[in-house]
């Protein structure tokens, strides 16, 4: 039921404009089906039946789509190679806003399994892990914890996330929002590194939406309250149509494909 007078009037006007009785909410009919369509069944079958060779094709499509977007994609054989690739980035790049080299990463099993903490510690480079905010904290303490995390994220020149999915057709990394996996890690640092397990590469958004709508293990979490599609570094062409990377978000983005 409408909670406010404005809302009641709004819907009355709306229904009248549509030629329906102004006060009766209409049934949804088949607007929101409870079963996948034939097309969606086909998509689901395609995803679940995808062969190793077809997956490899997706990887090359991903790489091809990424190139014009200024998005670097590296296919790595194992986690050690991924760790080395991150360390190489750390060594080669310098912080955009000055200051010390610092990294921030989600507290995520895949990222933690890279074993970055130890080699970075040896170089004296801080690696911040973004832990969930403890629900037991009172409001003031929770706010303080959020502020602390945010300042660390803002101070880091590289942010590491682990993608839920990756869409080959458009070179898109898909992130769902969860405690301990703040979205600003993919936003405030100048370089965004996204780890993508190969099994999470899909062809396109159609496949993804079919999974999110109908596949039990993804459906429960759904889109989460903040689903991000990220296809390359931030960019703008607002000054005389000249393309510049690094408008507000990361100016560089790297995808590391890892086994699993």
């Amino acid at each position: 039921m409408a909670e406010h007078r404005e809302e009641t009037l709004f819907f009355q006007t709306l229904r009248r404009a549509l030629g329906h009785p102004p006060n009766a909410a209409r049934p949804a009919g088949d607007l929101f089906p409870a079963e996948p369509s034939a097309e969606e069944r086909r998509l689901l079958a395609r995803v679940s039946g995808r062969s190793e060779r077809e997956r490899e094709e997706l990887v090359s499509r991903l790489a091809a789509a990424a190139r014009p977007l200024h998005l670097e994609v590296q296919a790595l054989d194992d986690l050690a190679a991924a760790r080395d690739a991150v360390l190489r980035l750390v060594a080669e790049k310098s912080p955009e806003w000055g200051g010390e080299k610092q990294l921030v990463a989600w507290s995520h099993p895949l990222i933690e399994s890279l074993g970055l903490a130890e080699p970075l510690a040896r170089q004296g480079i801080p690696l911040h892990l973004t832990r969930p905010v403890d629900p037991a904290l009172d409001a003031a303490a929770a706010d303080e914890e959020r502020r602390r995390q945010r300042s660390r994220i803002a101070a880091s020149f590289i942010g590491i996330t682990a993608a839920d999915f990756c869409l080959a057709e458009t070179a898109t990394v898909v992130l769902r929002n969860r405690p301990g996996e703040p979205r600003s890690v993919a936003l405030l640092p100048s370089i965004h590194v996204a780890l993508v397990p190969r099994s999470r590469i899909l062809a396109d958004m159609k496949e993804l939406f079919a999974l999110l709508r109908w596949e039990e293990r993804f459906r429960t979490e759904g889109l989460s309250n903040y689903l991000s599609f990220i296809s390359g570094p931030s960019k703008t062409a607002d000054i005389e149509a000249t393309m510049v990377h690094g408008a507000h978000g990361p100016r560089e983005m790297v995808v590391f494909l890892v086994p699993g």
Binding site: P182, S224, N225
Partner: peptide, 12 residues
């Protein structure tokens, strides 16, 4: 975007 941040989330 489906709503504000949820308990345990540090941004949003």
């Amino acid at each position: 975007i489906g709503g504000p941040r949820r308990p345990g989330e540090s941004d949003g």
